[in-house]
């Protein structure tokens, strides 16, 4: 066999700590944001990203050298890193910020760019959006800042590691699109990419021994302060209940009143 230059994949998966999907979101009394003193968990789309990285390793075996997870968040975001490590990642990076600060996609993308320059991954797998802010911009911005190929809304990812390409099936409006990207590349996950695993007890214990590196925004030289100012957050208007009408005439009268007929 002809010796080929061994190309080992490094995968970076950025994750976000967000309010748990099952929690009912409430606006806080000051109307500055939502109530954050509730259960948090890893953003489900990021969970899909971590799962995909782990599945790539299971498929490609030793070709995947390292899976690093990175999060930007308060001290408690550490738990999300531990969960990702228990799912099968090797190393965590925690960029710690104060609880009150909620960075915007551009800031996050700039911080991730510094992490990418430091860690030199071949593949970055992000969730397509977080279920709290629903911006869905970070992956695209990171690709723009790095000048890398991007494949968003992936529903299938195949890495051809000797050729150095990744083939991604994307979910687009009304169908699927297949794109081939040269590594290094950015992939953002869609809902149907995979079903994330539930971490097992032994793996949680093992994850406690895995390394987590702590960084700060200053060390990376990025400003995570938001550029937008939130003026006010309010709940959507309450839905009004319907009512039964006794006769057709009454219905017509009501419709006229509502300006329909």
């Amino acid at each position: 066999m002809r010796p080929s230059s061994a190309r080992l994949l490094n995968i970076l998966v950025p994750i976000k700590r967000s309010i748990d999907y099952a929690v009912k979101i409430r606006v806080n009394p000051q109307q500055t944001g939502v109530e954050t003193n509730v259960k948090h968990s890893m953003n489900p789309f990021d969970e899909i990203g971590v799962e995909e990285a782990v599945r790539l390793r299971e498929k490609l075996k030793d070709a995947v050298k390292n899976i690093t997870v990175v999060t930007i968040g308060p001290t408690k975001a550490n738990e999300m890193l531990r969960t990702a490590l228990a799912m099968g990642a090797d190393k965590g990076i925690h960029i710690e910020i104060p609880e009150t600060l909620s960075p915007e996609p551009l800031g996050v993308a700039k911080a991730l760019k510094e992490v990418v320059n430091k860690e030199k991954p071949d593949l970055v797998i992000l969730g397509k959006q977080a279920i709290d802010d629903d911006a869905g911009q970070t992956g695209q911005m990171l690709a723009g800042l790095m000048g890398w190929s991007q494949a968003t809304f992936a529903s299938k990812v195949e890495v051809d590691e000797p050729r150095g390409v990744v083939t991604v099936t994307r979910e687009v409006d009304g169908g699927l699109q297949k794109v081939e990207c040269k590594l290094p590349a950015i992939v953002t996950t869609d809902l149907r990419l995979n079903e994330p695993r539930y971490t097992s007890l032994p793996n949680i214990m093992k994850a406690k021994k895995k390394p987590i590196e702590k960084l700060s925004a200053e060390e990376l030289g990025v400003d995570l302060r938001p550029r937008l100012e939130t003026v006010k957050v309010t709940e959507p208007p309450k839905r009004k209940g319907g009512a039964k009408v006794e006769s057709v005439d009454e219905l017509v009268a009501k419709l006229k009143e509502a300006g329909v007929a």
């Binding site: 099952a22 979910e171 009304g174 809902l191």
Partner: peptide
């Protein structure tokens, strides 16, 4: 979890579901 996300983000499923096997 899957159903929650599907209801929250993929409300207009008709077109997509039918086009999945075609590719």
């Amino acid at each position: 979890k899957y159903r929650h996300l599907k209801n929250a983000y993929y409300s207009d499923e008709g077109v997509k579901a039918s086009s999945v096997p075609t590719l």
